[in-house]
Amino acid sequence: MDQAIIIEKGIFIVVIFAITMLFAMYETLAERKIAAWFQDRVGPNRAGKGGILQPLADGLKLFSKEEFFPNTENRFLFIAGPAISMTTALMTSAVIPWGDKLTLFGRDVILQATDINIGMLYVFGVLSVGVYGIMIGGWASNNKFSLMGAMRASSQMISYEVAMGLAIICLVMMTGTLSLGEIAAGQHGWRWNVLYQPVGFIIFLVCSFAETNRTPFDLAECEAELIGGYHTEYSSMKMGFYLFAEYASMFISSTILAVLYFGAYNYPGMDWVESVAGANIANIIGIFVLFAKICFFIFFYMWVRWTIPRFRYDQLMKLGWKMLIPLAIANIIVTGIIILLADQNL
């Protein structure tokens, strides 16, 4: 029995890893295709049918590039930077519930690598450790532009983590749990959290743009001022790791948005499907529903990139500290009062 669980979880983790990588790969293509669509161009269409092999060609190119080391005495840290970024980008997927439990070969298969009590805090822990990848890489490059880019990126990430945490507190107050599995299960059918916590959702959304260093908050790689930001000195696959980590974390943060606020694997009419076709079919549809939501949020990320221009650095800090944090605190107070009133009426 014990061995069966280890094998089951092992297979599951490998599948999740493969899916994350596949998504990160095809996000690069989707980004370029969507950019082309917004700007009325064709986009990459040479490698394969409609550019379907473009990510493979990009990867091959990155692998075959010269591996450049800047003049630094910290070669180990220079290599550790992208490695930490990549690792932390992939670690979060361990606590995400990808679907309700399936019954295969007479066993209940729980579609979550591990459902720890503190799932939500785990996500935050991994996020805060992810800053090290950028910081160490930027510092070890021994380049002022890299250092400034790293400083910007990490101070931005730290600042927005605060507002993000405060936005999440409302959700925890409402659901009374920190486990992502229970939060997902609590949004059965149409009871999606976004309907109860619209302000919290907007704060969380803005913060996740800042956390993944995406436009309009991609000041870390503000080309006009900082060349390439913290990865100026990087080349070959180390550079690829940084870029890949960004896309992987975009996929993960889309997943977290979908799980926390947009009902995870729940969809309206799931009870009806379950009564007609059985629990397994309903839950498999649920997995597809979750991935549809994830794809929507990934598209949303790219949509915003070509809609809103980049913020100035002081504007970014002002938005984070002077607008989002007070708004999040007000949201906590209002949520608390409403929960108290609702408890008294019952």
Partner: peptide
């Protein structure tokens, strides 16, 4: 997790 968030994630950064 609080030790990681507070000490490694915030203070040391």
């Amino acid at each position: 997790i609080v030790h990681i968030i507070v000490y490694s994630g915030a203070i040391m950064i």
